[in-house]
Design a protein around this nucleic acid. Structure first.
Lengths: 337, 337
DNA sequence: GTGGTTTTCGGTAACGTTCTCGCTACTTTA
DNA sequence: TAAAGTAGCGAGAACGTTACCGAAAACCAC
């Protein structure tokens, strides 16, 4: 289905001037008489001229598109990060192309494989859980397409990364539980392959150790990010002879799943068993008792990632940066005895 | 920043054949010897050739991009619709360009104004709350770029639309409240300008009327979609001499805001005042008491919208369709006496 | 006036691909 | 064996724009 639109040729013909002049007039005023420029602009408006980005992209070998590759969009964290990205991208005249991996490494590989190098000026990425090959990212960077990681970063790839302070957030969360008098603290961890899973686990373990508490491997369970996972993790923990008296979950969804499982067992949340999450998903304020959590600056992470990407795209040799944004403990009812 | 990639010219040169032949070999086998085709494919793989979509788009005047214009992405409904869209688009080799209006009519106008006709093959739209000018959409369609509306549709524009059954969903919800013995039913409605706001309101009013109950304008409050709006609506209602004994909210977020306001007033939800929402946001199962709601088939709406758009894009004169997907009442604790 | 700048503009190639047409060489048909 | 058909390939234009370079026109100083 071919279509024909108004082009600068049409404007040039109507005004009896050359295409080059129209082209220049439409961009900066450089090398063009103000009067001519006015005429061109007026005519363009009159004919409702819209630039053809394919042609511009072809000659300039750029697309004004930024890719966003994420595991999902249907949750508070990612959709909020995305909103931050959108704000910056829009302000700079870039459009966003979204790719959802559904946490599937195959899907991620397929997307990166199909990616036309010419269709993207830059890429923002939060890697899928089990991604193990980062060759595609390095190839992109080698080809001059900057990549910036956020949240779930690929350590091995040398480029800018933006994340929250997973280690200290987890440490603070665990310390808070200890301060509240909980002693048998379990950790509902994320998939073992991810960097931030390990960071949060490390924060948890160090807090225990520094407080003279033992780290018990039976109380650390690695599973997915979903509410169901949290629910099942509790089911597993509650088969143990010695049950925990507090749970630190890798995110709020799992914490909520855990709370539902505890409610089913008639366990008093807060009093008997403390629960703490990570993210500050709006759900954490809705559930009863309200969930203590570690707030992530999701919107800021989105903004900053996109800003960094812009710098990588415009400056020739912008040095890669790793930015770690602070996480903030928010105490609510689920950890109040 | 200009970059150079592998092109079909490179393949042609290395194989000492013409560009035309390479081009044909890379697409369908038509008019090209299987052996030649094999050689080209092998060389393309070896050189890691990626097609330049700008060039293809330029000559074919299409982009393989679909635009998605939505008020927001940070909520269950829209992010789920988007996931449905993504699935279909991806399966058909289209990329998605996302535009977020933040429910601002100005923003929506600006986006549509800037839209290059050549950068999109089709557009999926859920209009912003107060949008009043639909000229842009009609212009797109006139220019051969199909538009499909979902959820928040622009009635006046003649094109395909996909939505849930707002009227009957609202009717059922209200009928359910009446069946449970509630008689003084208020409606926390959405912004007055939107079609689906009016449909839900009509369903509510008809259910009252058909059951011999009066429609009282003081009990119908139009405001935004947010949780805070629901909270404030209750504050207003509770200043009335005669307070309602049930609330039907236009969506779950508002219903939840209302529940929080009721909890603050120590009102027993379910027993004293029934509350019912619309959407089936996962939050509705988390809050306590759990929220009765009308489930919208968000994922299906996304899939179907994109499928319809595909048909508009590929078939020359595909006739516009209006699809209304059924909504389903889900009874939970907030309406059980 | 003369020579030299500066301002303003036009011609042309290029970007990577597809498309249309035409040519050659081989195969089939009568 | 000649005519007709077919398979396979190449040349060149086209898509809409920008980039580069040179030329004309206008201005300026002496």
């Amino acid at each position: 289905m071919r279509r024909h639109y108004i082009t600068i040729k049409d404007i040039a013909r109507e005004l009896a001037i050359s295409v080059s002049t129209v082209s220049r007039a439409l961009r900066d005023a450089y090398d063009v008489n103000p009067k001519t420029r006015e005429k061109v602009l007026a005519k363009a408006m009159e004919l409702n001229y819209k630039p053809n980005f394919n042609a511009i992209g072809l000659v300039q070998s750029q697309s004004h598109h930024i890719g966003v590759l994420m595991p999902a969009i249907t949750n508070y964290y990612f959709s909020t990060v995305f909103t931050g990205i959108e704000q910056v991208a829009n302000a700079n005249g870039y459009s966003l192309i979204v790719f959802i991996t559904n946490d599937s490494a195959e899907r991620e590989q397929a997307i990166l494989q199909d990616l036309s190098l010419s269709s993207l000026d830059g890429l923002l990425v939060s890697v899928s859980s089990q991604a193990d090959s980062y060759a595609h990212f390095e190839e992109l960077i080698r080809n001059g397409i900057p990549v910036v990681f956020f949240d779930r970063v690929a350590d091995a790839v040398l480029t800018s990364k933006v994340m929250q302070d997973d280690y200290h957030g987890a440490y603070e969360a665990t310390q808070h539980l200890i301060d509240q008098g909980y002693r048998r603290i379990a950790h509902l961890a994320g998939p073992a392959g991810l960097t931030f899973t390990l960071k949060r686990r490390k924060g948890y373990e160090d807090a225990l150790t520094n407080n003279g508490l033992p780290v018990r491997s039976a109380w650390v369970i690695h599973s997915g990010f979903s509410q169901e996972c949290g629910f099942e993790d509790v089911a597993r923990l509650w088969t143990l002879a010695e049950k925990p008296d507090a749970l630190f979950a890798v995110n709020d969804r799992k914490a909520i799943g855990a709370m539902l499982a505890l409610k089913e067992r008639k366990v008093q949340i807060g009093k008997e068993v403390g629960v703490i999450g990570f993210t500050n998903d709006p759900m954490s304020q809705i559930i009863s008792p309200t969930l203590t959590t570690v707030a992530e600056p999701a919107f800021e992470i989105g903004k900053l990632s996109c800003e960094l990407l812009m710098k990588h795209m415009t400056r020739k040799n912008f040095e890669a940066q790793e930015v770690i944004l602070p996480a903030r403990l928010i105490v609510r009812e689920s950890t109040r005895r």
